[in-house]
Design a protein around this nucleic acid. Structure first.
Lengths: 351, 351
DNA sequence: TTTAGCACTCGATGTCAGGGAGTGCTAACA
DNA sequence: TGTTAGCACTCCCTGACATCGAGTGCTAAA
C-alpha cells in the first residue's frame, strides 16, 4: 500500500506538482476556488489556461483537488494538502523579532503552569488560531508525600504531593472510621516506605507487600494508593490541557456553520479526546500534522492540528500545537509550532 | 425618578398590561414579532385587532415594545421585559420529578467542588442555556487545617484545607530554612489556635498576637497567613467560577451573529467580569435578573442573566445563575434558579 | 503536446411582481 | 367615549426570470 502510494507520488509529474503547490498556496491566501486562468498567471510557467485545465483534470482524478461545482475553480482535498505539506511546502522561517518576542513571552513566568499557559497564548497569538499545550506526562510523577485528614464519619481527605511540588487531593470513602492517629500512622508508613518512587511502581509494591504482612492499616492504604492511581487517570482526563484562543476560530468562515462550531467547542470543553489525539504525537520527534479527517475525530473534520512534542532534559515532557481550519498557512504555522516547542523545553529546563 | 417611573407603572391600564403580558409570552414562545390579530385571538379578551393596535401604539410610545419595521408585529424592549418580570410574570413551578432529578444530581458528589460543577450542569441541562456557579466567597472561607512540607532549600509547600474540604496550596519562600519538625510545630500551632475561624479573622488575630508573644515560628506563620490571603485573591480572579453549557447558547439564533457570539465567548474565557457581575447579586436575597444591557456589560447585551445567591448555614456562600438570550422562558428559568440555589445550599450543608 | 475556440454549466446578482402580514388612520357605531 | 370596520399603505418574503462572469470539458488545429 505504501509501495503503491509512493509510486503514485513519484509518478505525479513535476509540472503537476508545481501547479498543485501554486494552487494550494493561492487557495490558502484567498480562500476561493482557483481557476485555470489565475493559475496560468501565477505559475511562472508560460502555459495557457487550457493546458492547465488538463493538468487540473489529472489532479482531480488523483483526488488531490476537487471543484465545488462545475464552473468553479479547484480546491485542495485532504490528500492534496497532505502531499503539499509532505513534499511541496517551503517553510517561512520566523522573523528574528518574532522569536525574541516569543522568548520574552515564555520567560519571566513564576511557575511551570504559567509557562505552559503563556506558551499556549503565544501560539494562539502568533497564528490567530487556537493554541494547545499538554502538560507533562503523569507516568513520570514521583511520589513524595501523602497526608490524610479525617473528615466527617468515614470520609478521609487524602493529599498527595509529587516531587515536582504539585498537590493533588481527593476525598476517599473508607469502610470503617479511622482515628486521626491511625491516619497519621498510615501516612508515615507510606511516606517512609515509598517516598521517591514512581506512583505506578509504588502501587505494585504496596499490593505485593500487603500479601506478606497482615497490616492493620491495609484498607486505608489501599484506598490511598487507589486514589493515587486516580490521580494518574484524572490528570489524564483533560485537566492537564491548556487551551487558549478558541474564539479566534470564530473568524474563519469555514467554521461559521453553527453545527460545526458547536461540535468543535464542545470538544474543547470535553478536552479528553483532544488529549488522546495529542498523545499520539508524543512519540513523533518533530512537527506532526493532522489534516481534516485524518485525525479520525469528527469535531476536527474541517480543522487541522499541527503538533510538536517538547522535551525537557532530552526527555519528552509533553506536546503542544495549534488548531485551525484546514486552510491554514502551514508554511508559517509549522515553524511557529516547531520553535515554540523548543523554546518551551528550554524555558522549563531553566527553572 | 423612581417616583416618576412608579406613577407610570400604575398609570399603565390593566388592559395594556395584560396585552403586554400576552405579547411577551407569545414572543418568548415563538421568537417572532406578534401582530394585533394573533394577540386578539390569544388575549382571552373579546376585542378586535383594531382596538389592540391602539393599545400597541400606547405601549410603543412608552417604550415597552417596538416593531422591527412598519409591517411587522411588536417585539418587547428591555423595559418591556423588565415590567414583565417585575409584575406580570406568573411562574411555572417545577414538576416534582424535575426537583428530585435535580436533587439527585446534586447529592452523591464526592467533594464541594464537584457539587458546584454538578449544580452548574444541572442548570445548563434544565434550561438549555449556560449555567454558572460562583464558588463560596473567599471571605467566608473557614480555616480548618494547614500543613507545611519542606521543599528544597527555603521553599515550603503550604497546604490549606477549608472546612468545606477544598484544598489550596502554594509554594512560599521563607528567609531561613526550616526543619521538618519546626514546620510541624508551626502547623500544629496554627491548627489548634485558629481552626474553625474565618481566614480574614484569623489573619487579623494572628498579626495581633504576634506583637504580644515573641514566637520563634513567627516568620513561617506570617508567610502562611499571607499565603492564605493570596488564596483569597487568587480565587477572586476567576478560577472560582464554574461555567457550563456555553455551547447551548449557539442554538439560539439571536446569538448566531459571529461578532456577538465571539465577544460572548471571550467573556466566558476571561471570566472575571462575570464574577464581578455575579457578586452584585450576592447582596440580593432572592432571584435577581439582568435583562440585556441592564448588566452594563457589553458582551451580555443580548443576553439575560438570572441569578440567585445560595446560603450555607444561613450565611450567603455564593451565587449561581443562568445566562441565555434575552428572550428566555423566565417563568421556568426563575424557579429553576431559585430552587437550585436552595438545593445547592442544602447539599453543601449536608457534608 | 499544446493551444485556441466554443458550447455549456453553474452560481451570484439584480429586477420584478405577487402575496401576506401588519400597520395607522378615518369614519361610523354603541 | 371607547370600539370597531374598512381601507390604503408599507414592508418583507418568495419565486420567477434574465443576465453576467468565471470556469469547465471537449474538439480540432498547430
Amino acid at each position: 500500500m505504501t509501495e503503491k502510494s509512493r509510486t503514485v507520488d513519484t509518478e505525479l509529474p513535476e509540472r503537476a506538482q508545481h501547479f498543485l503547490k501554486i494552487l494550494i498556496e493561492r487557495y490558502i491566501r484567498d480562500g476561493e476556488p482557483v481557476g485555470s486562468r489565475t493559475l496560468a498567471r501565477d505559475s511562472g510557467r508560460d502555459l495557457s489556461p487550457a493546458t492547465i485545465r488538463n493538468v487540473m483534470a489529472d489532479l482531480e482524478e488523483m483526488g488531490l483537488v476537487t471543484s465545488p461545482h462545475t464552473s468553479a475553480g479547484r480546491v485542495p482535498t485532504v490528500s492534496g494538502y497532505r502531499m503539499f505539506v509532505d513534499s511541496l511546502l517551503t517553510l517561512k522561517p520566523l522573523a528574528s523579532d518574532e522569536i525574541t518576542q516569543l522568548q520574552a513571552g515564555l520567560s519571566g513566568e513564576p511557575d511551570a503552569k504559567a509557562v505552559l499557559e503563556s506558551a499556549s497564548q503565544v501560539l494562539a497569538g502568533l497564528t490567530h488560531m487556537a493554541g494547545v499545550v499538554k502538560m507533562p506526562r503523569p507516568e513520570k510523577v514521583i511520589f513524595r508525600q501523602i497526608e490524610f485528614l479525617p473528615l466527617s464519619g468515614k470520609r478521609v481527605l487524602a493529599i498527595l504531593v509529587t516531587r515536582e511540588g504539585d498537590v493533588h487531593n481527593r476525598i476517599i470513602e473508607t469502610r470503617k472510621a479511622f482515628s486521626a492517629s491511625e491516619l497519621e500512622e498510615a501516612a508515615n508508613l507510606l511516606n517512609q516506605h515509598y517516598g521517591g518512587e514512581g506512583l505506578e511502581q509504588m502501587r505494585v509494591r504496596l499490593l505485593q507487600e500487603m500479601e506478606d504482612t497482615r497490616n492493620r492499616m491495609n484498607r486505608i492504604m489501599v484506598r490511598a494508593v487507589e486514589m493515587a492511581g486516580q490521580v494518574l487517570e484524572a490528570t489524564d482526563e483533560g485537566d492537564d490541557l491548556v487551551l487558549t484562543g478558541q474564539t479566534n476560530l470564530m473568524d474563519f468562515n469555514e467554521l461559521a456553520d453553527m453545527n460545526r462550531l458547536r461540535s468543535l467547542f464542545e470538544s474543547f470543553t470535553r478536552k479528553h479526546e483532544l488529549v488522546h489525539l495529542l498523545e499520539e504525537s508524543l512519540r513523533a520527534d518533530g512537527v506532526q500534522i493532522f489534516i481534516g479527517e485524518e485525525s479520525g475525530y469528527q469535531p476536527l473534520d474541517h480543522c487541522s492540528l499541527v503538533t510538536a512534542p517538547y522535551t525537557v532534559d532530552d526527555r519528552v515532557a509533553g506536546v503542544l500545537g495549534v488548531i485551525g481550519p484546514t486552510r491554514m498557512a502551514y508554511d508559517r504555522v509549522i515553524p511557529i509550532v516547531d520553535i515554540t516547542a523548543k523554546l518551551l523545553g528550554a524555558a522549563l529546563k531553566a527553572r
